[in-house]
């Protein structure tokens, strides 16, 4: 029987990857509905598409969480709120 024990899955990490997979699926569906990736030049002068904005949001979220953990420590709710706010800013203005 094919076993995935060695991958050491847990519900929190599985949930994390499910969210990432759902975000990518949403991007695919949005691209089918509104083709072209809605390119624009945002406040930082960067030419971004919808996918770029998702990438920036995810990378920023990772860095915000690590910075929070390194400087303040647990719990990470503050980092999560900042990440969500920053993602909203990126999708609206960047």
């Amino acid at each position: 029987m094919f076993s995935l024990t060695w991958m050491a899955w847990t519900w929190p990490t599985a949930a994390f990857f499910i969210v990432i997979a759902l975000l990518i699926t949403t991007m695919i569906l949005l691209e089918r509905k509104y083709p072209g990736g809605s390119p624009r030049r945002g406040v930082f002068g960067l030419d971004t598409t919808r996918g770029d904005r998702l990438f920036i949001s995810l990378l920023s979220a990772a860095i915000i969480h690590l910075a929070w953990l390194g400087i303040i420590g647990t719990p990470l709710w503050g980092a999560l709120i900042i990440s969500l706010l920053f993602a909203a800013f990126v999708f609206k203005f960047v």
Binding site: A8, T10, P12
Partner: peptide
Amino acid sequence: VIPLMTVVNYSFQ
């Protein structure tokens, strides 16, 4: 992808 997922899993355990 699969090795990366495994590393993520290991990093919390």
